[in-house]
Amino acid sequence: MIVMQDVYKTYKNGVTALNGINVDIRQGEFVYIVGPSGAGKSTFIKLIYREERPTKGTIVINDKDINQMKEKNVPYLRRDIGVVFQDFKLLPKLSVYENIAFTLEVIEESPRNIRKRVMDVLELVGLKNKARFLPDELSGGEQQRVSIARAIVNHPKIVIADEPTGNLDPETSWEIMRIFEEINARGTTIMMATHSKEIVDTIKKRVIAIEDGVIARDEHRGEYGYES
């Protein structure tokens, strides 16, 4: 499903973010990515949907080597991967509803299905009453939930979330975790970078710890392992 072999990433400014990553994540797994700030978690995640490209090494997603992939096929890769971005990446001039609908317009869903699925997912993240709001008119936590709704609305095979509970109060965080568990139960692969010791230690899943650009730990039903 997601396989990385000897992956290195050095940014243009000379910073080496990843220093030889080997990983194999199966369909349907739920994985936490943990580690200190600046360890390379976001970089690791960005390689998967080809926002960044590795300096060295191979990355295979759904049996496709995404390094060999032609530029014109990248959009189709990205449609299979729902991403909750650390900085949300909402379209500022579109309403909450339009932001989520955009993903479905791209895959040419019928307007009827779009309406239904957007309203359903808004209900799921508890933002049905804010459908007409612009991102600017929402709190950080609400924007994060819009980003989550957009990532899951078209039922992608993989959902990747970069600190999706970072701006949420504990109650909403647990609500979001419940949603992730639910879509994971339907067979969706979930990968989630997080700093929440409480979540990792409570909902036990596979834990991959990245430190200084290498995988320091990779345990099933692992612990957070850092001070919170």
Partner: peptide
């Protein structure tokens, strides 16, 4: 920036 976001959520260039 918006175009970048659109591409990241799977929009083709033509779209």
């Amino acid at each position: 920036k918006e175009i970048g976001i659109m591409k990241l959520v799977g929009a083709t260039n033509n779209f």
